[in-house]
Design a protein around this nucleic acid. Structure first.
Length: 560
DNA sequence: TGGGCCGGCGCG
DNA sequence: AAAGCGCGCCGGCCCA
């Protein structure tokens, strides 16, 4: 059973029962307390909730202690359908979708900030009504989406997985990642010195900054945070460099270099994940980042604050399970090459990807050269195939891959050719890459491959290759995201059955579950089962496997 | 002073 | 050793 939901902007709303196809199957029920109404229906029957936006509605339900099993997120599905039709970036609200159905002018989406502010800003009923949902529109847009989905292979699963992902994302924010502010503070103090007052540099950073200045001599003054000033200082010292990136500096023989490298590393920790970050993002022993489902074209999630997907490895020491609880940390080993093996139906490759270390399994195709191990050659070759590299030694490694695994090789080559000719490519479940920009079409259609390039735009040949690399990678990265989303949905369902364990972190191909110690092994089993279910849902009987590396720990940093 | 771009680097 | 893909965030810096 499905139930359509519309909010009225005052805490109430409307519900309407639908058939699976989305046909209204009863009258509209107006309810004064939407949270209570959803809670009640979820208890007796757990329908699939059809609502405009999980990100807007579900946090309120969670705060009231209400969790739901399934939903259909109209805005996320609208985005997927628009993308499939090559119409990236068009408004995706229910209002906009309704207008498209009726051939009326399509209203633009409201920026997220305005949306967040809306609840508190309205001071009269008319404005509230304008911000609320029209249940008739909800029902009609859902029915149209169901019809469109039915025409597209894999899309029903994609819509369900994306919607389940939205539930997970809201729950991750609500539950939070266990985070020890004391451990974090101790780590910062160890590495940077005591917390400074005001906007001062921590002692260790100031000390390094002073020594860097001394290393450049008495007449030079540099702010180590300024790449421009560092470039000038090295040039003045007779060492012109193209940039101040760590790998460039490493090649220089100058006393400032080791100091600068250390400064950069510590300054990064201080500015990105220092005390200010701790104050802003950690409270009550939990880190609560905001995730953006569908925020990356490939279907990966983005974050809108807190940088949850860029937590430095050294900080994982601050992620500590509650007393009597454990963290179950699981990541999909070498997910992308395995996805390619399954996608391409490359028998030899999939067999190699059936067990254990994939790169090691492929390394018999290569020879150790002393400098580079056979395993590393296999890895470089694979990454080059998936990312579009192919300079230097990678060329030979690619050639070996091509002869050993022709189907996998051809799969990504075909995706690259599609991109270069301006066509769209899709993930296994149908998530579609954005079309090339008008500027790209203009630049590449003239046929002036090596004509004079306009400043800053590059040549047509560069643009073609760049688009080819993008679509080449898209098919693999987006299908890996399909798989991860399917795993997440399956795991969420299994954890609900275990009751207490909670998903607390998700990062592309890795999950962390916070669980009572006694249930840790059950959680590990649930993760393995979810990975297997995702494999079957996406690829059926492929011989490729997606092994999960699982660790049961008290601290995130103790996993691998 | 605030917006926007860029260099650089964290994560996968 | 870096590279080839996808992101977010910071400080510096330029401009209005």
């Amino acid at each position: 059973m499905r139930v359509a939901v519309g909010e009225d902007g005052r805490g109430g709303g409307a519900l309407r029962v639908l058939t699976e196809d989305g046909v209204a199957d009863g009258p509209v029920h107006r309810v004064p307390d939407l949270v209570a109404a959803v809670a009640e229906r979820e208890r007796d029957g757990a329908p699939r909730w059809v609502w405009p936006s999980t990100a807007r509605l579900y946090p309120r339900l969670l705060r009231a202690g209400v969790r739901v099993a399934r939903c259909h997120d109209l805005e996320l599905v609208e985005s997927l359908l628009l993308g499939h039709a090559g119409r990236y970036g068009e408004p995706r609200s229910v209002r906009a979708a309704w207008a498209r159905l009726r051939g009326e002018p399509v209203p633009p989406d409201r920026p997220p900030r305005e949306e967040a502010a809306q609840a508190s800003l309205f001071d009269d009923d008319r404005e509230r009504d304008a911000a609320g949902d029209d249940i008739e529109q909800v029902v009609a847009v859902h029915a149209a989406q169901r019809r469109a989905i039915a025409e597209l292979d894999g899309f029903a699963l994609l819509a369900a997985a994306e919607s389940a992902g939205a539930l997970v994302a809201a729950e991750l924010t609500h539950d939070g990642l266990p985070w020890s502010a004391d451990e974090h503070d101790a780590l910062l103090t160890e590495m940077l010195g005591p917390r400074p007052s005001g906007g001062l540099r921590p002692r260790r950073l100031q000390d390094l900054a002073d020594r860097i200045n001394a290393a450049f001599g008495p007449r030079t003054h540099v702010n180590p945070d300024s790449p421009t000033q560092i470039l000038k200082a090295f040039a003045a010292a007779g060492l012109p460099v193209p940039s101040t990136r760590a790998h460039v500096l490493k090649r220089l023989d100058h006393p400032a270099v080791p100091l600068l490298l250390e400064y950069k590393e510590l300054a990064r920790l201080h500015t990105a994940h220092g005390w200010a970050w701790l104050d802003t993002w950690v409270g009550g022993g939990r880190f609560r980042p905001e995730y953006v489902v569908g925020g990356v074209v490939s279907g990966r999630w983005a974050t809108s604050g807190g940088g949850a997907l860029q937590i430095p490895r050294v900080l994982r020491r601050a992620v500590v399970a509650d007393p009597g609880w454990s963290l179950v940390v699981a990541d999909a080993a070498q997910l992308e090459p395995r996805v390619l093996a399954a996608l391409a139906g490359d028998r030899a490759f999939a067999d190699a990807a059936a067990h254990g270390d994939l790169y090691a399994a492929l390394s018999d195709a290569f020879r150790d050269s002393g400098e580079v191990s056979a395993r590393d050659k296999a890895k470089i070759g694979l990454l080059s195939a998936m990312y579009g590299g192919g300079t230097g030694e990678a060329v030979q490694f690619l050639a070996v891959l091509k002869s050993r695994f022709p189907a996998a090789f051809e799969y990504v080559e075909a995706a690259a050719r599609a991109g270069e000719s301006g066509r769209l490519v899709r993930s296994r479940l149908g998530r579609t890459c954005p079309p090339p920009s008008a500027g790209w079409r203009e630049l590449t259609s003239a046929g002036d491959d090596d004509g004079p390039a306009e400043p800053g735009r590059g040549t047509a040949a560069q643009a073609l290759r760049s688009r080819g690399r993008f679509t080449r990678n898209f098919v693999v990265q987006a299908t890996a995201a399909d798989w991860a989303l399917a795993l997440l949905g399956s795991l969420r369902r299994r954890l609900t059955a275990l009751d207490e364990p909670r998903l607390v972190f998700f990062q592309h191909d890795e999950v962390v579950v916070h669980t009572p110690e006694a249930q840790a092994e059950d959680v590990a089993d649930a993760i393995r089962a979810a990975a297997e279910e995702a494999r079957l849902l996406l690829f059926g009987d492929t011989p490729a496997r997606f092994p999960m590396e699982i660790a049961i720990v008290d601290r995130y940093s103790d996993a691998k």
